[in-house]
């Protein structure tokens, strides 16, 4: 009778805080976060195009913002988010074909996507500065 009051231990839903943090989990969360960020970046791209069409006067403040440290930091983050979403998107396309899913491959491709994202803005900056 004493035992009847205590419910049997049942499996619980895996809450976020009981998971050991690992890179493939970070890569999945980052894919969503960068996707949402790129939604905002695409809105800004559309507004940028409208500002260009609006004429030199309308474009001047946009140009000032893009050249400012805030604008440059925003461009760095946008290119990094895009590079990440692109590399991780390719990773997912490979996953769709059932490849690269074993833990060690999935770990190293996740790290590659993150490092690629951090490096890509410097690559773009180098192209813009020293390119043809």
């Amino acid at each position: 009778m004493a035992g009847a009051t205590r419910p049997r231990q049942r499996p619980v839903s895996p809450h976020l805080q009981v998971w050991r943090w690992h890179i493939t989990m970070a890569s999945s969360i980052l894919h969503r976060l960068t996707g949402i960020a790129l939604y905002g970046a695409t809105i800004l791209l559309a507004l940028w195009l409208m500002a260009v069409a609006g004429g030199a006067e309308m474009y001047a403040p946009v140009q000032a913002l893009l050249a400012s440290p805030w604008g440059q930091a925003g461009l760095y983050l946008t290119i990094a988010a895009f590079a990440y979403h692109l590399a991780n998107g390719v990773r997912h396309l490979v996953f769709d074909f059932g490849r690269g899913l074993n833990p060690s491959d999935a770990d190293s491709s996740a790290w590659f996507a993150i490092l690629f994202a951090l490096a890509a803005p410097f690559g773009v900056w180098a192209l813009a500065t020293f390119g043809a």
Partner: peptide, 21 residues
């Protein structure tokens, strides 16, 4: 987008580096 995205980022970065209207 795998083709169009990188094209735009690179082409725009190279063409707009002067930054003017």
């Amino acid at each position: 987008l795998l083709l169009l995205g990188p094209w735009f980022v690179i082409a725009a970065a190279v063409s707009l580096r002067g930054g003017g209207y």
